[in-house]
Structure formats: structure tokens, C-alpha cells
């Protein structure tokens, strides 16, 4: 059993206006890895590279220890995928989709698929176009979860879904993860979902992996130092991950809050960073290109 379900080494991919150069990423098995980053950072590109929807100029991608080009079919047989724009034909209903997709997967269970449809409240006969956006996403999820995949690859699966469904979905995924052979790679803008649920967080920006860290590190070791401008001088530079100046002082994201505490003394506020804070403080203003 591989200790890494997904390994991306030295991948190079470029679009007009966007390049991703020698990207390395490792997704450990049996865990949930959250992928966060601003629009156009390359989250969707990564997912598409793994699924071989787009070609790459250089680099290797191993899934379940197998090269995803040489063993394309076998690798994809064990991946459950959900894209931010579920692109099923519009005049198809859930029952047809199940009958058409089922045979592709060894682990497919029609019974589990029906149970998921019931649980997610998806009408079996209704045409795809007639479903609400939320319902369309739930159908894509039902299909991804119905064939007992070892890796769930999700690009923005909860876009436009409400809090209650997101919580149920996370609980559903948590149940799946009790089997430590399963893993989840989950890209989202709603970072509050990841805060409690993800074991590792990978931040990607402008085509570069900025870091891949356990969520506990971000939550417990990292800190946001808030204070007057002179506070920055007291911090040692390599520890600072990002700075933002506000009308009332500065906010500095540091990778070692306890170290910062010793440096700054008791008077300075050091908060626990939310993932939004991490993302905002490590992003330089508003540099957005078309989302990839």
C-alpha cells in the first residue's frame, strides 16, 4: 500500500497568460488534503493534469504508484472525480447515468448509488437540465461516491451548496475515510469547510505550490501577529510569511507563533490564523486572471 496516493514531480504546463513550472506535490494516502488558492492559481489545472484531461509539457504524475499515462485506465478506475462544472448531457436523468456509467467501474454498486441518490434527495427521473445547480453537484458527487473509489478528486464540489449539505457531505467523506486506504484531494474557496476536516493544506498561487503543511501546523504553530508598525522589526524575517498594513497597524503571518511571542512580548496580539487569513496574507493584492 503506497504511503502517497498521488505524487506530482516537476510538472510543467503553460496556457497563454499562465504557466506552471516544475511543480511537486505529494498527497498522503488515508488523509484529506485541501487545495486552496485564489482564482486562476492553477487548482483546476492540477486536477485536470491528474485526470489526463490536459497534456503536460514535462514531469511525471504517479497515482496509486502507477504512472497516470502508462496505466491511464487502471488509475482512473480507482478515482472518483467531481468538477466545478458537472458536464453531463442535459437531457439525461440520474437513472440512465447510473446504468451507463456503472459498467466502467469494478467497485460500482447500483444499490449504493440509489441509496446516495435518496440520501442527497436527487429525483431519479428528472432531466439534468431541470435540476438546480446544487442538485447537479450532488448528482456528480453521488456518481463519484458510488464506485468505492480509493481517491476522491474534487474541484470546488461545494460551490453554491448550503452549509447544511456541506456539513453532511463532510461527515459522509469522514465515514469513507475510516478505511485508511481511501484519500481525498479537495479544492475549495470555502475554507471553513477545510479547517475542521482537512489533514493537510496545500496553497497554490500563480502556478506555484507555496506550501503543503498539516492543518494542525497552520492552526497551532502559525500565528497572525497584530500590532503597531514597529512590531515587524522585532520579528525575524524568515519566520514572516506575509504582511498586510491596515490603518491601525500591521498584521504579520508568522510560521512560528511561540517564537514570535518571545520576540514581541506579552503586549502584542497573536491570533490563531483562519485559512482565509493565511490565503489573504500570502496573496499580494488583486492579481486575478481567468480561472484555470
Amino acid at each position: 500500500m503506497e504511503d502517497n496516493v498521488l505524487e506530482i514531480r516537476g510538472v510543467h504546463k503553460s496556457y497563454p497568460g499562465f504557466t506552471m513550472r516544475d511543480v511537486d506535490l505529494v498527497v498522503p494516502t488515508g488523509h484529506v488534503t485541501g487545495l486552496i488558492g485564489p482564482n486562476g492559481a492553477g487548482k483546476t489545472t492540477l486536477v485536470k493534469l491528474v485526470m489526463n484531461l490536459i497534456t503536460r509539457e514535462a514531469g511525471e504524475i504517479d497515482v496509486f504508484g502507477l504512472d497516470n499515462l502508462l496505466h491511464e485506465a487502471e488509475v482512473k478506475a480507482r478515482i472518483g472525480f467531481v468538477y466545478d462544472e458537472p458536464n453531463f448531457p442535459h437531457d439525461v436523468n440520474a437513472r440512465d447515468l447510473g446504468r451507463a456509467i456503472g459498467p466502467f467501474y469494478r467497485g460500482w454498486s447500483g444499490e449504493r448509488y440509489r441509496r446516495l441518490l435518496g440520501e442527497f434527495g436527487i429525483p431519479v427521473r428528472k432531466r439534468f437540465k431541470a435540476l438546480s445547480k446544487g442538485m447537479q453537484m450532488k448528482l456528480a458527487l453521488a456518481i463519484a461516491l458510488a464506485h468505492d473509489a480509493d481517491l476522491l478528486l474534487m474541484d470546488e464540489p461545494t460551490a453554491g451548496l448550503d452549509l447544511e449539505f456541506r456539513r453532511d457531505l463532510l461527515e459522509h467523506l469522514a465515514a469513507i475515510l475510516e478505511d485508511e486506504r481511501k484519500s481525498v484531494l479537495f479544492s475549495t474557496h470555502v475554507t471553513s469547510d477545510l479547517e475542521r476536516f482537512a489533514d493537510f493544506i496545500t496553497l497554490i498561487r500563480d502556478g506555484e505550490i507555496v506550501f503543503s503543511l498539516p492543518t494542525s501546523d497552520l492552526r497551532d504553530a502559525w500565528g497572525v501577529v497584530k500590532g503597531a508598525a514597529d512590531v515587524l522589526a522585532r520579528l525575524d524575517a524568515p519566520d514572516v510569511r506575509g504582511v498586510r498594513t491596515g490603518p491601525h497597524g500591521v498584521e504579520a503571518l508568522v510560521a512560528n507563533a511561540s517564537l514570535a511571542r518571545t520576540k514581541c512580548g506579552p503586549g502584542v496580539v497573536i491570533d490563531r490564523p483562519s485559512l482565509d487569513d493565511v490565503l489573504v496574507l500570502m496573496t499580494r493584492g488583486d492579481s486575478y486572471v481567468e480561472s484555470h
Binding site: K48, M51, N52, L53, E72, A73, E74, V75, K76, A77, I79, F81, Y83, P86, N87, F88, P89, H90, I101, F104, Y105
Partner: peptide, 21 residues
Amino acid sequence: AKEDKFSATAFTCSLPVTRDD
């Protein structure tokens, strides 16, 4: 034409098949 219209090819390509298939 239908597959092209709904850009469903990306979905088909995500199934456990190779592009040549």
C-alpha cells in the same frame, strides 16, 4: 455533436478509459 455541445468529452475522458479507447 451532443457530446461536443455539452463539452461532455471531459467527463467521458475521466472515465477509466484511455484516450485511444
